[in-house]
Design a binder for these strands. Structure first.
Lengths: 253, 253
DNA sequence: CGGGTCGTTGACACATTTCAAGTTTAGTGG
DNA sequence: CCACTAAACTTGAAATGTGTCAACGACCCG
């Protein structure tokens, strides 16, 4: 597969290590000195390509590495005994898949790719001991965890108190911002998710997500062609989803 | 009111500062040296009594203090435009109310007491600069945030994929563990929450919570007399709520 | 060309909400 | 200690949002 070949090439000819973490949430930390940035780069392992629908991490299995997504999409999820899945975090390029395993030995969620993806990783022991020596790194871990907290709190509000239509609108708005789209009346991006995966984020059924997508489409709010998602009336979609980007702590929005 | 008097006394005759943070989640951190513990104690402000249903923190207003609950119950919550409330965290004695404002300037939730309560607090600037000097404190912030994350992820699973009955069972099990009750077949604790507040945690209606409480009662799983909650069949309640205490990272459970 | 995944549609079931009483409980003042 | 009030809990009937089941169509990839 093409992905495999490309990563093999990169592994044998590693780029300047400075570039590896670039564009990553870790690197976006306001708390890192350049020395600390270098320390982090130095313990980062080379990129690894992973096919779609592969587990990065399984609930309750000890995790020895912290994985950072640099290409493709992934998610954290949990399942009920009857096999229903709830996605508890959507991971896009730059996101850290299993931040908490830097301090805890085992996670209480699984993580898997949703598309073909590429990750870099850091050994658990090494980031943990690095956080022991560098204040900025420890503070960065706290900062990342608190942002995830803010997103999870917002999801709780959506899951508990918004209608299916509102939840979908909210998710699309969140994605638009997180993918770095400007806050215009129109926004276009690739949405490589099946309606079933969207359902697993919103706590709904694939069938019902389908109906809601059609409803938004019929209302002239969004437009879809294959994986291409266009938000044609951002203001209205935000109003419906009660979306306020403040919780993302993103300057752009 | 009795509470007021007691706190005034304590404020004018401060106890040994070592005792203030005792029993608090902050103090439970495995990352604090005794020096760091003292540093934290030294910046802790004296206890303050607060009546029930008072806001500790309002969404989007800048927070200058990190508040730690030492008596009574409180919650973090968010509301929709139509006024529906979702509680995103239940705070019991020892919990930190607004951890994230130690690094972010404003929170994206409100916090309020659910009963008469007592808090101690730490100035935002002081804990932030303390985290600048002491690795253990920075690491503790990360550790606390990650535990909150684990709880929120679990709540997302409950809100998205469990039935009303399951969610209630799960909440009662979580409370039993968090309140430090042993894991026996029977557990008894004070539950100073109205059914409406429970509904706001579970993303349900007070009326429906009432029906589910009755259902659990009729099934011989729980027993309530006023504020006294008794779980009479813990094993069965755990099975129903699909409760596994691992996500609480609590040694007792 | 064929097979499987994903999207779409319709009819129906059901969990939960809504609305609108009633009853109990707890708190307060006389 | 009782009377009064408001808040909390309880109950029932009807409305509704979302789930379930089952089928069909479109598209992609080998």
């Amino acid at each position: 597969m093409l992905e495999e070949v490309r990563s093999a090439t990169r592994a044998s000819h590693p780029r300047s290590p400075e570039a590896t973490l670039l564009g990553t949430r870790l690197a976006a930390s306001p708390f890192l000195s350049s020395e600390e940035r270098h320390a982090l780069e130095s313990i980062t392992l080379p990129p690894r390509s992973i096919a779609a629908y592969k587990d990065l991490l399984r609930q309750c299995e000890p995790a020895h590495h912290v994985e950072i997504l640099i290409e493709g999409w992934a998610c954290r999820y949990k399942t009920t005994r009857e096999g229903h899945r709830q996605i508890v975090a959507l991971l896009i390029p730059g996101d850290v898949a299993n931040l908490d395993t830097s301090l805890f030995t085992r996670s209480n969620y699984s993580a898997r790719t949703l598309t073909a993806a590429k990750t870099i990783s850091v050994a658990r022991d090494r980031i943990s001991s690095l956080a022991e020596q560098h204040i900025g790194i420890a503070k960065t871990l706290a900062w990342l965890a608190m942002r995830e907290n803010a997103i999870l709190s917002q999801w709780a509000l959506c899951l508990g108190r918004l209608s299916a239509r509102q939840r979908l609108a909210h998710l699309l708005c969140e994605l638009s911002v997180r993918l770095g789209n400007a806050v215009e009346t129109e926004s276009r991006f690739e949405l490589p998710l099946t309606q079933e995966q969207i359902a697993d984020m919103l706590g709904l059924t694939a069938v019902h997500v389908n109906r809601m997508v059609q409803q938004l489409r019929a209302g002239g709010l969004i437009d879809t062609h294959g994986r291409a998602m266009t938000i044609t009336d951002m203001a209205a979609l935000r109003r419906i989803g009660e979306f306020d980007p403040a919780y993302l702590h993103d300057q752009r929005a």
